[in-house]
Design a protein around this nucleic acid. Structure first.
Lengths: 145, 145
DNA sequence: ATCCTAAAACGAAATCATTTCTATTTAGGA
DNA sequence: TCCTAAATAGAAATGATTTCGTTTTAGGAT
């Protein structure tokens, strides 16, 4: 993995610094999405010094480069997720256990084109995310009176 | 309009207080989305006293009741939009001039069902928003070297 | 291997949008 | 007209996120 992550950084045109790699690997090790502070708490013991701003900065840069994904959360805080899928796609996010799953093919390019044409403007990006409860969490919620 | 907005509030189970009505009408008068502070600045002269927290609180309540719509913005601040369309639908948002336009029918219920089934969980909500430049802003951007 | 430079990291401090809290006021049904 | 739950004030707190000036470092060039 180390190798692959270093390569991913290089491909994104980013220096493979130890901390940046560690942040990326920590996110990779998460089963769901994670917040900057959570990752920082998990990593700070492994370095003599690691600032929370460094974690924020790196996560933002990694997301901007497309190496990781930002989660849109109802509480409006920042969360990130490592998704190995390099295709353009979207996610299902479990708001209970933080699991993130890929959605099948994003069929929005047709919509984008149609909207661009009908509006006479330019669609630059789109946001699509399903929120809910994954199988495990739905079962737990349903089984709890 | 006054009448209609008061009715909309009643239907939403909310008291039609003067300030709440004024906030709703101010948002209605906006051509695009607006922030709590912008609306507050526009309204505070009309009342001897009007607190910014009151604007925040009302906008949030109105959005929760479905009377107004929240905009998802890259800068992660709160913006709201008055959309008279009561059908379930989504929006195209111009990031330059703040214009908001309705998208044609949201075709996500099929996707929700499929995802619910394949994941074995429950899709509770979805986010879909197109961001871009409206016709006017795209032309202006294109014409500016 | 050593240098050099732009990039990255530091962390304390600032920021500032948003929320909380308690007391006071008010809408609107009884 | 009363009554009560809902709404408002507004000062203060909050706390996630960013800024800033300085120091360190990765990694291509020599």
């Amino acid at each position: 993995m180390e190798q692959g992550h270093a390569r991913a950084l290089k491909e994104a045109g980013m220096k493979a610094t130890p901390k940046r790699l560690a942040i990326l690997e920590a996110l990779y090790a998460e089963s769901g999405y994670a917040s900057p502070e959570e990752l920082w708490k998990r990593l700070r013991d492994r370095f003599d010094r690691l600032g929370l701003p460094t974690v924020y900065r790196n996560l933002e840069e990694l997301a901007a480069s497309g190496v990781i994904t930002k989660v849109i959360h109802p509480n409006r805080q920042l969360y990130y997720f490592f998704c190995p899928n390099r295709e353009h796609h979207h996610h299902f996010v479990c708001l209970s256990c933080r699991k993130v799953e890929d959605l099948p093919a994003c069929g929005l390019s047709a919509l984008e084109q149609e909207v661009s044409r009908s509006i006479g403007g330019k669609v630059l990006s789109h946001i699509l995310q399903l929120n809910g409860l994954c199988g495990v969490c739905a079962a737990a919620a349903g089984g709890t009176p």
